[in-house]
């Protein structure tokens, strides 16, 4: 709070300094900001700050605090006992295989989303920006997965697409007979592995579903950004003899810098907090994700281990923070260089 009032004061000082003719100080009296202005400013800054504190920082700090307790989620708050680092110790010894497989899956997802769906979403946006006939219809179709409810998404991928005996994919492949069915969402054996860990085959299958949602999301974001790029830039590059790729790579993409950063951050966050589709499929083995570990311990029927669940949450928080700070720092550094 003190930081902010200081800033506020400095703001007022600057404003005051440009207008005051009195050299003896007492700047406040000559501030252009009336009492009403100031209270409006306080409200404008204060309300979002309060909301931010209540809904982001307090829960985040509470999560960190709870990760050092043995709370079962049911007993009165007064009975919560501190257990030090025991939850973390358990997570990295007894439950290590869970957290490592989840970490590997989340990490793989970051790379996959960048290389696959994010790139494809950008491509779609670029194409749709060319005012194709029926562009709006394509746009709606690609965006549809983002707005579908969890239950519908679960049903689509579980029963319609990936059912071994009745699903679309098995039917198209002609593998619905009794001996030849493919257990798309249940086969947790590793497609490629390293030691005891690896990427499960069913995780690869669910990546398709995740891509299906992510493409539409990125497309809409990028499309909005593209609309704001000055068309004369593209005309100029066309006159200069750029081909389509050069125009995108050298002119449009750099002009989209702010959107690029947002898309990058969103992709990382989506990958790290990936949750809904796997949850809708009742979290099969092989699709372990950090967010699933958190919910399993916090709220699942096996809930009642708020301490360990919060521990997983803190690990996820640190990963997110680390990733985002690294990413933004990199971007800012590049910006300075160019």
């Amino acid at each position: 709070m003190s930081d902010r009032s200081e800033l506020q004061e400095r703001g007022a000082t600057t404003v005051g300094a440009t207008t005051t003719f009195d050299r003896r100080g007492e700047r406040r009296r000559f501030s252009q900001l009336t009492r009403g202005d100031k209270s409006v400013l306080w409200l404008i800054v204060g309300i979002p700050t309060l909301i931010h504190l209540v809904f982001v920082w307090i829960p985040a700090i509470a999560t960190v605090v709870l990760s050092f307790t043995d709370w079962d989620g049911l007993s009165p708050v007064s009975q919560i006992g501190l257990v030090g680092f025991q939850n973390y110790w358990e997570i990295f010894t007894v439950f290590r295989s869970d957290v490592v497989s989840a970490g590997i899956n989340n990490g793989f997802l970051v790379v996959f989303l960048f290389v696959g769906p994010t790139a494809f979403g950008v491509l779609l946006a670029y194409l749709l920006d060319k005012n194709l006939r029926g562009g709006r219809i394509y746009q709606s179709i690609y965006y549809l997965p983002v707005v579908l409810s969890l239950a519908v998404v679960g049903f689509i991928w579980k029963s319609v697409m990936y059912s071994p005996s009745q699903g679309v994919i098995s039917t198209v492949l002609g593998r619905t007979g009794s001996g030849e069915q493919i257990d798309w969402l249940g086969d947790q054996t590793h497609a490629f592995g390293f030691g005891d860990y690896g990427i499960s085959k069913n995780f690869l299958a669910i990546l398709v579903a995740m891509a299906w949602r992510h493409v539409g999301y990125i497309m809409v974001l990028y499309l909005a950004g593209l609309k704001s790029v000055d068309p004369s830039l593209r005309e100029a590059s066309a006159i200069d003899g750029c081909n389509e790729w050069q125009a995108f790579r050298r002119v449009v993409f750099p002009a989209m810098k702010p959107i690029n950063v947002v898309v990058g951050v969103i992709t990382v966050i989506e990958a790290l907090r990936a949750f809904d589709i796997v949850f809708a499929l009742k979290s099969p083995r092989g699709m372990d994700l950090l967010s699933i570990l958190v919910t399993d311990n916090l709220i699942g029927e096996g809930g009642g281990n708020v301490g360990r669940g919060s521990g997983y949450g803190v690990i996820l928080l640190l990963l997110c923070l680390g990733f985002i700070i690294w990413y933004l720092a990199n971007n800012i550094r590049q910006e300075r260089r160019s």
Partner: peptide, 16 residues
């Protein structure tokens, strides 16, 4: 970025 962390606990509030 912190929305994710908020959601961790937010989940229980929402469910309640």
């Amino acid at each position: 970025m912190l929305a994710g962390a908020g959601a961790l606990l937010g989940v229980s509030a929402v469910l309640a």
